Amino acid sequence: MLPMPILLRCPVCYEALRSEHKSAVCQNHHRFDRARQGYLNLLPSNKKRSKNPGDDQIMVEARTRFLNQGFYQPVVDALIDNIKSFGNNEAPQRILDAGCGEGYYTSSIKEQLEDSSVCGFDIAKPAILAASKRNKAIEWLVASVSELPLMDEQFDTVISIFSRCDWSEFSRVLKPGGHIVILTPGQNHLMALRRAIYDEVRPYPEDKRLQDLPENLALLESQTIHHRMMLENAQAIMDLLAMTPHYWYVNARQKEQLEQQGRLECELEMRLSVVQHRHTKTR
């Protein structure tokens, strides 16, 4: 069975986009050419908040090296188990990875659910360039979560991993009864890494977004994923640092101290929450 196509909409006029040669074109003749790597850039320059938004090349490369070693495999397993549980007799789904980064989780989903249609987008062009190398069967987009270039009510599942959520946009593109899977840091996530670079470390706060959901979204369940990682060299430790927001806040001395450790046992603790889109529409 061929996967169902991902239905795109024009980020300028919001009309449907159709494929035309190596481009996507709407009825108002707005045209978006596919890059050589296969992705579409559907983030117009006048809707960017900065010239190069999102993660830079260094962070993308670090994340790729680190995740490719399988340290976060328990997260992938939990994610895929949940997505499979949403299916109707294992019928193909349309799945959206919102803020997909360099595509590690997106590609894993497509490999496990190969009949499903999968779309991944990120605001960072370097991330989508890297993602495009992982799997050519995924629709990769440069896009913003606050204005998705996607047609209404087509996705069975939206996933958001350590990324910003826009409940209104997620609700718009989800089918009634569809699900949102959100991964957020647990209170003690990467505690050993944080203790190695800060004098004082506080637990991560609970995610308040899930305590104040709009009426058309309901929290079904939450679970905590625990896993202990043994990082055996300085490269892995520094790559983990570069994956996190802490990368932007540590100074040269703190980075040097961390790099000199050479070995770090670190706990992964993530909160996986499942939200369902109720059948009532909001616009």
Rank of each mutant, 00 (worst) to 15 (best):
V12R: 10
H179M: 12
D97L: 06
V142C: 01
I159D: 03
I6A: 02
Q235C: 01
A91N: 11
N251C: 02
K110T: 03
A234K: 12
D166A: 08
S171D: 14
H30R: 11
L190H: 13
K133I: 00
M151R: 11
R263W: 08
E153S: 15
L272G: 07
T224W: 03
S132V: 04
M59W: 08
D77F: 01
I182G: 02
A242D: 07
C26N: 10
R94P: 01
L8E: 02
V142G: 00
M4I: 04
R134I: 00
G186C: 05
S160R: 08
V250Q: 01
Y204Q: 09
H246L: 03
N41P: 07
C165Y: 06
A78N: 14
Q257R: 14
A91P: 00
E256R: 15
G87D: 08
Q254C: 04
S45F: 09
W167V: 09
Q260I: 00
Y249I: 02
V181H: 05
D97W: 10
E114P: 06
R278Y: 04
L67D: 00
D56T: 02
P176L: 08
I123G: 02
V274H: 06
I95G: 05
R49Y: 11
D166M: 11
L96I: 06
K48H: 12
K175V: 15
S171V: 07
